[in-house]
């Protein structure tokens, strides 16, 4: 189930533009790793290259290795569709399928994988919605469209959709940035729950959030305009926020940035 990532010398490009320079990073299993850093430093780009979503953009490409329990997801014989089936992703803005019911949204990934058994789909829907702390709020309206939920509920629906396929890793790209504080708290509690079972990588602009939910924090920065983003340092979250080894990290977390 929960697997580890080893990112080796990862360079990411948009066409000719070198977006991220040589990232080396280990993400342990059953652990929350937070990516922090200023806008445009490439943290979302790195996240998106962990499930091969980066290459969906025309001209985008990647060099280097991303090992998932030792297997390179960029090996030539690996199908990106298969990679995405085992690595779940939650986006910045909730994106449930608007024409599908709540339940169909949750089991969409399983349906894609070919599961047709109704009993099994019902069970997974309930288990995933419970896992996403949404079951009690929606159990009476599973057949209603997912678009009718509040923003925070929609985001939890998207988390339920991502964990329904029991992914090896869960990637979250600023999952709370479009949510109010109460919904944010609900998602953060959920992340703490989910890390018992899943490896989680989360990108966040909110440093308090990184400090609250993550075990390990990676700080990305830009060296200058037009320069590629860099991984400056990665360490235990506690250490990053109390005694970082790099001056740039300290400046950023203490707000003396730029």
């Amino acid at each position: 189930m929960a697997k580890r990532f080893d990112i080796k010398d990862l360079n990411i490009y948009y066409g000719k533009f070198h977006a991220v320079n040589s990232v080396n990073l280990a993400v342990p299993p059953r652990n929350v790793t937070a990516f922090i850093g200023p806008s445009g430093c490439g943290k979302s780009t790195v996240l998106r290259s962990l499930n091969r979503m980066h290459e969906v953009i025309p001209g985008a490409r990647v060099e280097g290795k991303v090992l998932l329990d030792g297997e390179d997801i960029y090996a030539s014989n690996v199908d990106p569709v298969e990679v995405r089936r085992t690595i779940g992703m939650v986006f910045q803005r909730p994106n449930p399928f608007p024409t599908m019911s709540i339940k169909d949204n949750v089991v969409a990934g399983l349906r894609l994988a070919g599961v047709k058994n109704k009993k099994q789909l019902d069970d997974v829907a309930e288990r995933s919605l419970r896992g996403a702390n949404l079951w009690n709020e929606v159990k009476d309206r599973l057949d209603k469209p997912g678009g009718g939920l509040s923003g925070g509920q929609q985001q939890r629906l998207c988390i339920a959709r991502a964990i329904a396929v029991q992914p090896d890793v869960l990637l979250m790209d600023e999952p709370c940035s479009a949510l109010d504080p109460i919904s944010t708290l609900a998602i953060e509690d959920l992340i703490t729950e989910l890390k018992k079972e899943y490896t989680i990588v989360i990108v966040t602009h909110n440093m308090q959030q990184a400090a609250r939910v993550s075990d390990q924090t990676a700080f990305f920065n830009l060296l200058g305009v037009g320069q590629p983003g860099q991984l400056i340092e990665v360490d235990d979250t506690e250490k990053i926020f109390s005694n970082p080894s790099q001056k740039a990290t300290e400046d950023y977390i203490s707000g003396r940035f730029g």
């Binding site: 979503m53 569709v81 995405r84 986006f91 994106n95 399928f97 969409a108 990934g109 894609l112």
Partner: peptide
């Protein structure tokens, strides 16, 4: 078709045609 819906489908492991069926066509 909203990009975030297309990406949502692709990130779930939809092939291009499955993505079209679940997002582009209903939209």
């Amino acid at each position: 078709t909203p990009v975030m819906q297309i990406e949502g489908a692709l990130a779930l492991g939809a092939t291009r045609w499955e993505m079209v069926r679940t997002t582009v066509l209903p939209f």
